[in-house]
Computed example of a mutant assay.
Amino acid sequence: MGLFNWLFSKGVDFYKLLQEHSDLALKGVQALALYMTTGKYDDGEKVIIIEKEADKKRKELIDELDSTFITPIEREDIYELSSAIDNILDYCETTVKEMEIYELSPTVELREMVDVILRGTELIDKSVYNLDKDKKSAMDYALKAKKLENEMESYYRKYLAELLKNDDIKYILKMREIYRHLSNCADKMDLAGEILGHILVKEI
């Protein structure tokens, strides 16, 4: 693309692309929540399929960033928000894959942790949807999502302490990895909320 064409390239709806990416993240977490209920292989595969769809959506967004001069919000903010959203799904996928490799079944503890991520991702999705509509509501959703990271940290410490009382060392090591993935997933949820807040504070 020549410089003239790049400077005056047609407008791209980055809000819509971010919304579509966020929708996929929410669908992926919903699929993970279902998997933690059923433990079925097919339900776990849904998480992996959605993660691949989200990778394609992120590539589309990055390609548009590379070919568009004017963006509605800062280019770096779009990139970082998309990255954080994508990482939520990455940890969901890794959780499923490792549970299958380790031959672990869902537990009440895992369901509780995934529920926190689900509630947080729902809030992130609502915030993204309101970026170009109701900025105050978007900020409110983002802040609420960030607060849930503290709830996850509380669960993580509590359930890890309980896990260490188990006599099966192999089980402890395997399940600790799953706990860690879910904790990291919540960290990325928190980061998405922080980036959204960073974007919005410049616009409200």
Score class of each variant (00 low, 15 high):
28 G>T: 11
172 I>W: 04
163 L>N: 09
47 V>T: 06
180 R>M: 14
84 A>W: 02
86 D>M: 02
176 R>Q: 11
59 K>G: 03
182 L>Y: 06
61 L>W: 07
123 L>Y: 07
80 E>S: 11
193 G>M: 01
92 C>Y: 07
19 Q>K: 14
85 I>C: 11
2 G>T: 08
22 S>P: 06
103 E>Y: 06
120 G>V: 06
65 L>C: 12
42 D>V: 09
83 S>F: 10
151 E>I: 12
184 N>S: 14
30 Q>E: 14
7 L>I: 13
139 M>H: 11
1 M>E: 02
151 E>K: 12
195 I>E: 05
60 E>C: 08
35 Y>F: 14
98 E>N: 15
154 S>H: 09
108 V>A: 09
17 L>P: 08
189 M>F: 03
9 S>R: 12
25 A>I: 10
161 A>Y: 03
91 Y>S: 07
64 E>R: 14
112 E>L: 11
21 H>Y: 01
73 I>N: 06
39 G>D: 10
90 D>Y: 07
120 G>H: 03
88 I>E: 04
18 L>A: 07
159 Y>V: 01
81 L>T: 07
72 P>E: 12
107 T>S: 15
37 T>P: 00
54 A>F: 02
156 Y>D: 12
18 L>I: 11
103 E>M: 07
77 D>W: 05
178 I>V: 15
38 T>G: 05
37 T>H: 04
101 I>S: 06
47 V>H: 11
32 L>P: 07
74 E>F: 00
70 I>N: 02
129 Y>P: 02
126 K>D: 13
126 K>G: 05
8 F>T: 11
108 V>W: 00
32 L>K: 06
124 I>M: 11
2 G>Y: 01
47 V>R: 05
127 S>D: 12
2 G>N: 15
135 K>W: 03
73 I>W: 07
62 I>Y: 12
29 V>M: 12
37 T>C: 00
167 D>H: 09
54 A>I: 03
200 L>R: 06
55 D>I: 13
164 L>E: 10
122 E>R: 07
115 D>N: 13
184 N>M: 13
87 N>D: 15
192 A>N: 01
6 W>S: 01
154 S>R: 13
80 E>D: 06
11 G>V: 04
12 V>D: 09
190 D>Q: 04
83 S>C: 04
73 I>C: 10
202 K>C: 04
11 G>I: 00
178 I>L: 10
173 L>R: 05
45 E>G: 00
70 I>P: 02
41 Y>C: 03
166 N>E: 15
184 N>I: 10
163 L>K: 06
25 A>T: 06
183 S>F: 08
132 D>H: 14
112 E>M: 08
6 W>T: 07
13 D>R: 08
91 Y>N: 05
188 K>C: 06
46 K>G: 01
40 K>V: 07
134 D>N: 15
43 D>E: 14
78 I>D: 04
141 Y>E: 10
190 D>H: 11
102 Y>S: 05
93 E>D: 15
135 K>V: 14
78 I>G: 01
157 R>Q: 13
104 L>P: 03
109 E>Y: 07
39 G>I: 04
116 V>A: 05
118 L>A: 08
86 D>N: 04
89 L>G: 09
133 K>I: 15
195 I>D: 04
97 K>F: 01
119 R>S: 12
145 A>S: 14
84 A>K: 11
145 A>K: 04
47 V>M: 08
60 E>T: 14
164 L>M: 15
146 K>E: 14
68 T>V: 12
146 K>N: 02
157 R>A: 05
